[in-house]
Amino acid sequence: MIVGERKPLGDILDMIKDYKKVLVVGCKGCVTVCNVGGEKEVGILASSIRISRKKDGNEITVDERTLERQCDPEYVDQLKDIVSDYDAMVSIACGVGPQFLAERYPDAAVYPGINTQFMGGALEHGVWAERCQGCGACLVHNFGGHCPIARCSKSLLHGPCGGSSGGKCEISKDVDCVWHLIVEKLAKQGKMDSLRKLVPTKNWSTSRDGGPRKVVREDLKL
C-alpha cells in the first residue's frame, strides 16, 4: 500500500487560515488501511480543525467526505455537485488525491493533508516499512525476495557495503541492512553462488529517472 503520515496540524491550519468553509476528503484505499486518510481520520482532522478555529474565535464549517478512492475519476466525480459550496478542500489521500481533485475541479483550492511516504507494508499494527521504489523492473527474485533498490540506503546491487554492522545499516541502528538479510537468506537456501555473479549496470530508464511514467492497457480501454 501507499503509506503516509498526517501533516502537522499547524501546517494544515495555516493552509486554510483564510477559509470559512472547508471539505476534508478522505480515501478508502491505501490510506484507510494505514490509518492516515480514511473516514475515521477525516473525522479526527475535521474535529481538530473546528476545535482550533473555535478556540481562536474564528469559526469554520468543516464537512467530511470519504471517497471510495481518490485515484479514479469516477469517484472524484462524485463531489461535482458540492465542490462549489466550499472555499477549499483538504485531501488526506496520498499525493495522487489532491492532484486528481485539482485536475477534476480546476477552480477549487485543494490542499494536501498528509505527507506521502512510500510503498510498503505493515510490519505490525501501527508500524509500516518501505518495500518498493517502483523502479519498473522488479528483480527481488535475484536477492532472496528482498529489494536492494528500496531497502539498501545506497541502492547497491552488490552489497553489503563496508558500513554493514551486526545486521544493521551504517545510517542507523534502526535500519536493517537488507544485504545482510539477502546474504543470510541465500546462504540458508544454499544459493550463495548467485551472489558471486556481477550484476550489470541497471537500466534506470524504467524508473522515475526515465521521466514521468504511464501504463497503457489497450485491452482495458473503453
Binding site: T201, K202, N203, W204, S205, S207, D209, G210, G211
Partner: peptide, 13 residues
C-alpha cells in the same frame, strides 16, 4: 538536458 536524449539513457539522474 535529460539523459534520455543522450548516449546513456539508462542512467539514473
Amino acid at each position: 538536458d535529460h539523459q534520455k536524449f543522450g548516449d546513456h539513457p539508462e542512467a539514473k539522474n
